[in-house]
Design a protein around this nucleic acid. Structure first.
Lengths: 170, 170
DNA sequence: GAACAATTGTTGTCGTCAACAACAATCTTC
DNA sequence: GAAGATTGTTGTTGACGACAACAATTGTTC
């Protein structure tokens, strides 16, 4: 109706609307929108950060096809050989049902092996294979690079502070 | 075969194994397992924290059946009435495909309405309904309580510091 | 030692979520 | 007006957390 273009809802006159992209440069579009009460909620910031950090981890370790959860499983087993599946699951806060599939995958890739426990015929003792140990060293180097990305993003000292604040969750 | 019980794999003699639970108190079992390199990775701590914080949010707002994502959508729309779906999706970092279902749900509950845009017949202008605005005020009070839980968990000043560190992701 | 309860690994289902791909309707641009 | 981009929508895929059930085994109790 009105001849003046208006950003719908805001009541603010649109400056070239969103067609400013026509001029060779496209607006980022993610900003210039108020969040108000959303900023100030820890959960929101943490969710965005967690999303970013996982994507970077996956991208950095894409060549070896290792996802964060797989890395955490191998790390725990590598540091504590012989653990049962429940023990690993509890330690990492994942369900033992889910760990089954994770171990299936890792065992298929000859990185982890399930050894029947001598003392409890129900449980398995989890170990890294020889190449599993070798590969894990490689993974750790790549994960260290990923952590450098994190440090670049939020600052080295902020990363340290973050780890300290969240230490009660590890 | 050996008479001495041994924690499988570790080679360390088991101190009463894991059957210490027989004596009226059960071992927490989540600790006494080394994480080694896992502590020191920001991603792991953040994942655990994000899990905890979302669960607390859901629990705290269980009476009104509002999940974190729904809350963030309503908050953004409330602060910027008339936004299109793509704008909201980009701002919150969720896919527009996913936002469709979120809005379907919120619209069914008469909290949000999709108004056909006057300037672009493809897009919808998103608004809170009258009761949507009213309810949102209630949700915000409950979310504030949730944030108090966070402050109790990690400390008030740590929460502030956390928000500041992660401000580049909001 | 027999009955009962608890644990371990496994399988399955359900709902949430991110990531894509495709599509019709519509708008922009040339 | 034709070509290309955008918007909302539908659908699929795979990762993930939460739950429930089950057989095999172990622990506990009378």
């Amino acid at each position: 109706m009105s001849s003046q273009a208006v950003r719908p809802g805001t009541g603010i006159p649109a400056r070239k609307s969103r067609s400013a992209k026509g001029r060779s440069q496209r607006i980022e579009a993610s900003d210039e929108i108020g969040l108000d009460a959303l900023v100030g909620h820890a959960g929101y910031a943490v969710r965005r950060f967690q999303l970013w950090i996982f994507q970077d981890f996956i991208k950095t370790l894409a060549a070896v096809d290792i996802k964060p959860t797989q890395y955490s499983v191998m790390t725990v087993i590598g540091a504590n050989p012989g653990l049962t599946q429940v023990a690993v699951a509890k330690r990492l806060g994942i369900e033992r049902a889910r760990l089954v599939h994770l171990l299936d995958s890792l065992e298929q890739r000859r990185l982890v092996k399930r050894v029947p426990s001598a003392t409890d015929r129900r449980s398995h003792a989890l170990h890294l294979t020889a190449q599993g140990q070798e590969q894990l060293r490689k993974f750790k180097r790549m994960a260290a690079e990923h952590d450098r990305h994190v440090a670049e993003k939020i600052g080295k000292e902020n990363r340290e502070r973050l780890l300290q604040i969240l230490s009660c969750f590890t």
